[in-house]
Design a protein around this nucleic acid. Structure first.
Lengths: 164, 164
DNA sequence: GCCTCATTGTGAAGTATCATCACTACATGA
DNA sequence: TCATGTAGTGATGATACTTCACAATGAGGC
């Protein structure tokens, strides 16, 4: 019974994820950005000038990867690299004017996107949707948390299917 | 006011999309699949043996790209290529045993995932969530439809920002 | 039958993203 | 000053995907 309902709902969730990701990817591409680079800009906007290590931890990618992302963003004029004032190993990544403006524009683009999705929706339906969404998200986060914990417990061994 | 609510909700939607896509990507990787290849398997399961052209249209990618995807799936033993019985230009792509079994397993994996997201959720909340989700999806699809139409109207010229 | 044109699929080559390994330069604490 | 850890990078390669050119075939007009 509910199996069927769940499957349909999951289908919707999957389609939503696909469409949203596609839309985002395309809209970012118009600014010369990829998902990863936009994510980096976003974190930079939240944190202000940061070392690459901090960004690597924030994006949960390797240090080497951050170098590549920052290289690309420097080459396209979104951010600059400066030596860290106290730690001569580290570099500080900061916005250029262009980068800061782009980050703001991304925020505004999201606003527009939110309007597209929600504007004019009956309030009760919207609230209820958000409630459900929150719960689903909690469950997902919890699961990922658990997965990550299991991974770090026995890092190099085979994960040995714990969810059965 | 509602601006703030919308922005928060959009944040949730974006996070959901990210997490779901990550989870899917990882779970597919365990089967040696990428998103595109899994999508191809899925279409093949829906349609039965198909020419590459049909698959290309279904996935909305170029013919060249389908060749690559099918190459990979043949190399990993999920599908086979056979000459088309009547059109000697075309090839028919069909499941191997392994491919069919994997496609079934993907379906079951989705069932599990759906349970993770929804099982035990109060019925009222679930229904309401699905309603909202449906509306949001409709809006998204409509917009993509419009975008695609606008693109094909003036294909090679600059799209000339119609959404402002 | 022959000619033209459209369609199906592929080879070659290029680009972008990301991962791994080895390494330099620097920091830190004993 | 020495050992050890940390920040970042060069070299290299894997993978996904794109573009361009092209061979093989089908299909319709004459």
């Amino acid at each position: 019974m509910t199996n069927k309902k769940y499957a349909t709902a999951l289908g919707q969730v999957l389609e939503l994820s696909l469409l949203v990701n596609d839309d985002m990817t395309q809209s970012l591409a118009r600014d010369g950005l990829t998902t990863a680079r936009a994510h980096l800009l976003w974190e930079l906007a939240q944190r202000g000038p940061s070392t690459q290590r901090v960004l690597a931890d924030a994006l949960d990618v390797s240090a080497r990867n951050i170098t590549g992302l920052v290289d690309a963003l420097v080459a396209t004029g979104f951010v600059t690299r400066e030596p860290h004032p106290t730690d001569r190993r580290a570099t500080l990544v900061s916005f250029t004017e262009h980068g800061a403006a782009t980050a703001r524009a991304l925020g505004e683009g999201q606003q527009e996107f939110a309007d597209l999705l929600f504007a004019g929706m009956p309030e009760a339906r919207f609230d209820c949707f958000v409630d459900g969404l929150g719960e689903v998200l909690d469950r997902l986060r919890e699961r990922l948390q658990a997965d990550k914990a299991a991974d770090t417990d026995q890092p190099p061994k085979q994960p040995e299917e714990a969810h059965a």
